[in-house]
Amino acid sequence: MRIFLTTITAAISFFTLISIANSADHKFVPALVFDMGGKFDKSFNQAAYEGAEKFKKDSGINYKEFEVTAPTQREQAIRNMAKRGANVVIAMGFAQAAAVEKAAKEFPNTKFAIIDMVVDLPNVRSVVFREHEGSFLVGMAAAMASKSGKVGFIGGMDIPLIRNFAAGYVEGAKYANPNIEVFQNMTGTTPAAWNNPGKGAELAKSQFGRGADVVYAAAGGTGVGVYQAAVDEGKLAIGVDSNQNYLHPGTMLTSMLKRVDVAVYNAMKDAKDGNWSSGIISLGVAENGVGWALDQYNRKLISAEMEEKINQARKDIISGKIKVKGYQSN
Protein backbone atom coordinates (compact mmCIF):
# COMPACT_ATOMS: atom_id res chain seq x y z
CA MET A 1 0.00 0.00 0.00
CA ARG A 2 2.75 2.37 0.92
CA ILE A 3 4.60 1.64 -2.29
CA PHE A 4 1.37 2.24 -4.15
CA LEU A 5 0.87 5.61 -2.46
CA THR A 6 4.46 6.63 -3.02
CA THR A 7 4.19 5.78 -6.68
CA ILE A 8 1.06 7.83 -7.00
CA THR A 9 2.56 10.80 -5.19
CA ALA A 10 5.65 10.56 -7.32
CA ALA A 11 3.57 10.34 -10.46
CA ILE A 12 1.44 13.31 -9.48
CA SER A 13 4.42 15.49 -8.64
CA PHE A 14 6.13 14.38 -11.83
CA PHE A 15 3.16 15.37 -13.98
CA THR A 16 2.74 18.64 -12.08
CA LEU A 17 6.37 19.40 -12.81
CA ILE A 18 5.91 18.57 -16.46
CA SER A 19 2.81 20.72 -16.74
CA ILE A 20 4.55 23.62 -15.01
CA ALA A 21 7.53 23.21 -17.32
CA ASN A 22 5.17 23.05 -20.26
CA SER A 23 3.28 26.18 -19.38
CA ALA A 24 6.58 28.00 -18.90
CA ASP A 25 8.18 26.82 -22.13
CA HIS A 26 5.31 26.63 -24.53
CA LYS A 27 3.19 29.65 -24.10
CA PHE A 28 2.62 29.49 -27.81
CA VAL A 29 -0.48 27.49 -28.77
CA PRO A 30 -1.50 27.20 -32.42
CA ALA A 31 -4.94 25.82 -33.30
CA LEU A 32 -6.41 24.35 -36.45
CA VAL A 33 -10.12 24.03 -37.24
CA PHE A 34 -10.87 21.57 -40.04
CA ASP A 35 -14.05 21.89 -42.03
CA MET A 36 -16.76 19.33 -42.63
CA GLY A 37 -14.66 17.28 -45.05
CA GLY A 38 -12.68 16.02 -42.07
CA LYS A 39 -9.04 15.70 -41.24
CA PHE A 40 -8.37 12.65 -43.44
CA ASP A 41 -10.04 13.63 -46.71
CA LYS A 42 -6.82 12.79 -48.65
CA SER A 43 -7.00 16.30 -50.02
CA PHE A 44 -7.59 19.82 -48.73
CA ASN A 45 -8.03 19.24 -44.99
CA GLN A 46 -5.42 16.52 -44.93
CA ALA A 47 -2.91 18.87 -46.50
CA ALA A 48 -3.55 21.24 -43.59
CA TYR A 49 -3.08 18.39 -41.16
CA GLU A 50 0.25 17.55 -42.78
CA GLY A 51 1.38 21.17 -42.55
CA ALA A 52 0.47 21.28 -38.87
CA GLU A 53 2.20 17.94 -38.23
CA LYS A 54 5.34 19.26 -39.89
CA PHE A 55 5.23 22.32 -37.65
CA LYS A 56 4.81 20.05 -34.63
CA LYS A 57 7.80 17.99 -35.69
CA ASP A 58 10.03 20.98 -36.42
CA SER A 59 9.17 23.05 -33.37
CA GLY A 60 8.10 20.43 -30.84
CA ILE A 61 4.99 22.48 -30.15
CA ASN A 62 1.68 20.67 -30.02
CA TYR A 63 -1.34 22.20 -31.67
CA LYS A 64 -5.04 22.08 -30.84
CA GLU A 65 -7.41 20.80 -33.48
CA PHE A 66 -11.10 20.37 -34.11
CA GLU A 67 -13.20 18.77 -36.85
CA VAL A 68 -16.48 20.53 -37.55
CA THR A 69 -19.62 18.43 -38.00
CA ALA A 70 -22.33 21.09 -38.30
CA PRO A 71 -22.16 24.68 -39.60
CA THR A 72 -22.83 26.14 -36.14
CA GLN A 73 -19.80 24.38 -34.75
CA ARG A 74 -17.50 26.48 -36.92
CA GLU A 75 -18.07 29.61 -34.87
CA GLN A 76 -18.26 27.62 -31.65
CA ALA A 77 -14.94 25.89 -32.37
CA ILE A 78 -13.07 29.01 -33.47
CA ARG A 79 -14.29 31.03 -30.48
CA ASN A 80 -13.52 28.12 -28.20
CA MET A 81 -9.93 27.95 -29.46
CA ALA A 82 -9.44 31.67 -28.91
CA LYS A 83 -11.04 31.49 -25.49
CA ARG A 84 -8.80 28.63 -24.44
CA GLY A 85 -5.74 30.70 -25.16
CA ALA A 86 -4.74 29.75 -28.69
CA ASN A 87 -2.41 32.40 -30.12
CA VAL A 88 -3.19 31.68 -33.71
CA VAL A 89 -6.34 29.98 -35.00
CA ILE A 90 -6.30 28.63 -38.54
CA ALA A 91 -9.67 27.97 -40.17
CA MET A 92 -9.84 25.70 -43.19
CA GLY A 93 -12.10 26.57 -46.09
CA PHE A 94 -14.32 29.29 -47.48
CA ALA A 95 -17.28 28.19 -45.37
CA GLN A 96 -15.63 29.35 -42.15
CA ALA A 97 -15.38 32.99 -43.22
CA ALA A 98 -18.43 34.22 -41.30
CA ALA A 99 -17.29 32.37 -38.18
CA VAL A 100 -13.76 33.77 -38.41
CA GLU A 101 -15.13 37.27 -38.88
CA LYS A 102 -17.23 37.08 -35.71
CA ALA A 103 -14.46 35.51 -33.63
CA ALA A 104 -11.79 37.91 -34.89
CA LYS A 105 -13.87 40.90 -33.83
CA GLU A 106 -14.50 39.38 -30.42
CA PHE A 107 -10.83 38.44 -29.82
CA PRO A 108 -8.80 41.28 -31.37
CA ASN A 109 -5.57 40.08 -29.71
CA THR A 110 -5.72 36.60 -31.17
CA LYS A 111 -4.32 35.95 -34.62
CA PHE A 112 -6.56 34.24 -37.14
CA ALA A 113 -5.85 32.74 -40.53
CA ILE A 114 -8.35 31.52 -43.06
CA ILE A 115 -7.51 29.42 -46.09
CA ASP A 116 -9.37 29.83 -49.41
CA MET A 117 -11.28 32.96 -48.45
CA VAL A 118 -10.78 36.62 -47.60
CA VAL A 119 -11.78 38.13 -44.27
CA ASP A 120 -10.81 41.77 -44.13
CA LEU A 121 -9.90 42.42 -40.48
CA PRO A 122 -6.65 43.69 -38.90
CA ASN A 123 -5.92 40.42 -37.06
CA VAL A 124 -6.79 38.02 -39.89
CA ARG A 125 -4.48 36.56 -42.49
CA SER A 126 -6.40 35.42 -45.55
CA VAL A 127 -4.65 32.91 -47.76
CA VAL A 128 -6.16 32.40 -51.19
CA PHE A 129 -4.80 30.28 -53.98
CA ARG A 130 -4.95 31.03 -57.67
CA GLU A 131 -6.07 27.46 -58.44
CA HIS A 132 -6.89 28.42 -62.00
CA GLU A 133 -3.18 29.01 -62.73
CA GLY A 134 -2.17 25.56 -61.57
CA SER A 135 -5.16 24.04 -63.33
CA PHE A 136 -4.05 25.83 -66.50
CA LEU A 137 -0.73 23.98 -66.40
CA VAL A 138 -2.29 20.55 -65.89
CA GLY A 139 -4.89 21.42 -68.55
CA MET A 140 -1.99 21.88 -70.98
CA ALA A 141 -0.52 18.56 -69.89
CA ALA A 142 -3.89 16.88 -70.44
CA ALA A 143 -4.36 18.35 -73.90
CA MET A 144 -0.84 17.40 -75.00
CA ALA A 145 -1.09 13.88 -73.63
CA SER A 146 -4.51 13.28 -75.17
CA LYS A 147 -4.55 11.27 -78.40
CA SER A 148 -8.30 11.55 -78.92
CA GLY A 149 -8.43 15.33 -78.63
CA LYS A 150 -10.93 14.97 -75.79
CA VAL A 151 -10.21 15.48 -72.09
CA GLY A 152 -12.40 15.51 -69.01
CA PHE A 153 -12.87 17.39 -65.74
CA ILE A 154 -14.60 15.97 -62.68
CA GLY A 155 -15.37 18.42 -59.89
CA GLY A 156 -16.57 17.73 -56.37
CA MET A 157 -19.37 19.91 -55.11
CA ASP A 158 -20.63 22.47 -57.59
CA ILE A 159 -19.38 25.69 -55.99
CA PRO A 160 -17.50 28.70 -57.41
CA LEU A 161 -14.18 27.42 -56.03
CA ILE A 162 -14.39 24.22 -58.07
CA ARG A 163 -15.64 26.06 -61.14
CA ASN A 164 -12.43 28.05 -60.86
CA PHE A 165 -10.43 24.82 -61.16
CA ALA A 166 -12.52 23.87 -64.19
CA ALA A 167 -12.17 27.25 -65.88
CA GLY A 168 -8.36 27.27 -65.57
CA TYR A 169 -8.18 23.70 -66.80
CA VAL A 170 -10.23 24.47 -69.90
CA GLU A 171 -8.14 27.56 -70.64
CA GLY A 172 -4.93 25.57 -70.35
CA ALA A 173 -6.23 22.74 -72.53
CA LYS A 174 -7.36 25.19 -75.20
CA TYR A 175 -4.03 27.02 -74.99
CA ALA A 176 -2.17 23.81 -75.79
CA ASN A 177 -4.67 22.61 -78.37
CA PRO A 178 -7.33 25.08 -79.56
CA ASN A 179 -9.42 22.24 -80.99
CA ILE A 180 -9.57 20.24 -77.79
CA GLU A 181 -12.95 19.15 -76.49
CA VAL A 182 -13.40 19.29 -72.69
CA PHE A 183 -16.13 17.37 -70.86
CA GLN A 184 -17.12 18.68 -67.43
CA ASN A 185 -19.04 16.95 -64.67
CA MET A 186 -19.66 17.82 -61.04
CA THR A 187 -20.08 14.93 -58.63
CA GLY A 188 -22.92 16.40 -56.66
CA THR A 189 -24.56 19.19 -54.77
CA THR A 190 -24.00 18.08 -51.17
CA PRO A 191 -20.74 17.84 -49.18
CA ALA A 192 -21.00 14.10 -49.77
CA ALA A 193 -19.67 14.95 -53.25
CA TRP A 194 -16.23 15.38 -51.68
CA ASN A 195 -16.18 11.75 -50.67
CA ASN A 196 -17.96 9.62 -53.23
CA PRO A 197 -15.34 7.50 -55.04
CA GLY A 198 -18.05 5.27 -56.55
CA LYS A 199 -19.70 8.13 -58.35
CA GLY A 200 -16.31 9.55 -59.29
CA ALA A 201 -15.47 6.26 -61.02
CA GLU A 202 -18.83 6.24 -62.84
CA LEU A 203 -18.38 9.81 -64.08
CA ALA A 204 -14.84 9.04 -65.22
CA LYS A 205 -16.03 5.94 -67.08
CA SER A 206 -18.77 7.90 -68.82
CA GLN A 207 -16.23 10.51 -69.92
CA PHE A 208 -13.88 7.78 -71.14
CA GLY A 209 -16.87 6.31 -72.96
CA ARG A 210 -17.40 9.59 -74.76
CA GLY A 211 -13.81 9.49 -75.96
CA ALA A 212 -11.84 11.35 -73.31
CA ASP A 213 -8.48 9.81 -72.49
CA VAL A 214 -7.30 12.16 -69.71
CA VAL A 215 -9.45 13.25 -66.75
CA TYR A 216 -8.67 15.77 -64.04
CA ALA A 217 -10.40 15.32 -60.71
CA ALA A 218 -10.77 18.28 -58.35
CA ALA A 219 -13.07 16.46 -56.00
CA GLY A 220 -11.31 15.57 -52.73
CA GLY A 221 -11.82 11.94 -51.77
CA THR A 222 -14.01 11.34 -54.83
CA GLY A 223 -10.86 11.57 -56.94
CA VAL A 224 -9.69 8.19 -55.63
CA GLY A 225 -12.46 6.54 -57.67
CA VAL A 226 -11.59 8.59 -60.74
CA TYR A 227 -7.95 7.50 -60.59
CA GLN A 228 -8.97 3.86 -60.15
CA ALA A 229 -11.28 4.09 -63.18
CA ALA A 230 -8.35 5.41 -65.21
CA VAL A 231 -6.29 2.40 -64.15
CA ASP A 232 -9.15 0.02 -65.05
CA GLU A 233 -9.65 1.54 -68.48
CA GLY A 234 -5.98 2.17 -69.22
CA LYS A 235 -6.51 5.93 -69.47
CA LEU A 236 -4.79 8.84 -67.73
CA ALA A 237 -5.84 10.84 -64.68
CA ILE A 238 -4.64 14.02 -62.99
CA GLY A 239 -4.55 14.42 -59.21
CA VAL A 240 -5.26 17.50 -57.13
CA ASP A 241 -4.16 19.45 -54.01
CA SER A 242 -1.52 16.99 -52.79
CA ASN A 243 0.94 15.19 -55.05
CA GLN A 244 -1.06 12.07 -55.85
CA ASN A 245 1.25 10.73 -58.58
CA TYR A 246 2.38 7.86 -56.37
CA LEU A 247 -1.15 6.43 -56.11
CA HIS A 248 -1.07 4.77 -59.53
CA PRO A 249 2.29 5.15 -61.27
CA GLY A 250 1.79 4.80 -65.01
CA THR A 251 -1.71 6.23 -65.21
CA MET A 252 -1.34 9.35 -63.07
CA LEU A 253 -0.30 11.93 -65.65
CA THR A 254 0.48 14.57 -63.04
CA SER A 255 -1.04 16.36 -60.03
CA MET A 256 -2.12 19.95 -59.57
CA LEU A 257 -0.37 21.00 -56.40
CA LYS A 258 -2.03 23.41 -54.03
CA ARG A 259 0.31 23.96 -51.12
CA VAL A 260 -2.23 24.23 -48.33
CA ASP A 261 0.28 22.50 -46.09
CA VAL A 262 2.82 25.29 -46.65
CA ALA A 263 0.20 27.96 -45.94
CA VAL A 264 -0.74 26.31 -42.65
CA TYR A 265 2.88 25.67 -41.69
CA ASN A 266 3.84 29.26 -42.45
CA ALA A 267 0.91 30.70 -40.52
CA MET A 268 1.95 28.75 -37.43
CA LYS A 269 5.64 29.48 -37.87
CA ASP A 270 5.18 33.19 -38.54
CA ALA A 271 2.98 33.56 -35.50
CA LYS A 272 5.54 31.75 -33.37
CA ASP A 273 8.59 33.64 -34.66
CA GLY A 274 6.92 37.03 -34.52
CA ASN A 275 6.86 37.40 -38.30
CA TRP A 276 3.10 37.47 -38.44
CA SER A 277 1.44 39.55 -41.12
CA SER A 278 -2.26 40.07 -41.55
CA GLY A 279 -4.01 40.79 -44.83
CA ILE A 280 -4.40 38.87 -48.02
CA ILE A 281 -1.81 36.42 -49.25
CA SER A 282 -2.54 35.27 -52.76
CA LEU A 283 -0.56 32.24 -53.82
CA GLY A 284 -0.21 31.40 -57.50
CA VAL A 285 2.49 29.78 -59.63
CA ALA A 286 4.81 32.73 -59.03
CA GLU A 287 4.81 32.07 -55.28
CA ASN A 288 4.98 28.28 -55.78
CA GLY A 289 1.60 28.12 -54.05
CA VAL A 290 0.18 26.13 -56.95
CA GLY A 291 1.95 24.13 -59.60
CA TRP A 292 2.24 20.79 -61.30
CA ALA A 293 3.98 17.68 -60.04
CA LEU A 294 6.79 15.94 -61.88
CA ASP A 295 8.51 13.08 -60.06
CA GLN A 296 9.76 9.54 -60.62
CA TYR A 297 6.18 8.19 -60.77
CA ASN A 298 5.06 10.14 -63.81
CA ARG A 299 8.42 10.84 -65.44
CA LYS A 300 7.72 8.39 -68.27
CA LEU A 301 4.35 9.97 -69.11
CA ILE A 302 5.67 13.49 -69.57
CA SER A 303 7.72 13.93 -72.73
CA ALA A 304 10.55 16.45 -72.91
CA GLU A 305 8.46 18.61 -75.23
CA MET A 306 5.52 18.64 -72.82
CA GLU A 307 7.76 19.51 -69.91
CA GLU A 308 9.35 22.35 -71.84
CA LYS A 309 6.03 23.81 -73.01
CA ILE A 310 4.44 23.62 -69.56
CA ASN A 311 7.45 25.21 -67.92
CA GLN A 312 7.43 27.93 -70.57
CA ALA A 313 3.74 28.61 -69.88
CA ARG A 314 4.56 28.67 -66.17
CA LYS A 315 7.17 31.38 -66.82
CA ASP A 316 4.72 33.26 -69.02
CA ILE A 317 2.08 33.23 -66.30
CA ILE A 318 4.64 34.57 -63.83
CA SER A 319 5.76 37.29 -66.22
CA GLY A 320 2.17 38.16 -67.03
CA LYS A 321 2.38 37.17 -70.70
CA ILE A 322 -0.36 34.61 -70.17
CA LYS A 323 -3.32 35.79 -68.15
CA VAL A 324 -5.41 32.96 -66.74
CA LYS A 325 -8.90 34.30 -66.21
CA GLY A 326 -10.48 31.61 -64.02
CA TYR A 327 -14.12 31.58 -63.02
CA GLN A 328 -14.31 34.68 -60.86
CA SER A 329 -13.27 37.23 -63.44
CA ASN A 330 -15.55 35.83 -66.13
Binding site: T69, A70, P71, T72, A95, A98, I159, T190
Partner: peptide
Protein backbone atom coordinates in the same frame (compact mmCIF):
# COMPACT_ATOMS: atom_id res chain seq x y z
CA UNK B 1 -27.88 34.47 -43.88
CA UNK B 2 -28.72 31.58 -46.17
CA UNK B 3 -25.88 29.08 -46.22
CA UNK B 4 -25.36 25.62 -47.65
CA UNK B 5 -25.81 22.42 -45.65
CA UNK B 6 -27.29 23.97 -42.53
CA UNK B 7 -29.56 20.95 -41.83
CA UNK B 8 -26.31 18.98 -41.15
CA UNK B 9 -28.09 15.68 -40.50
Amino acid sequence: RLILDFPAG
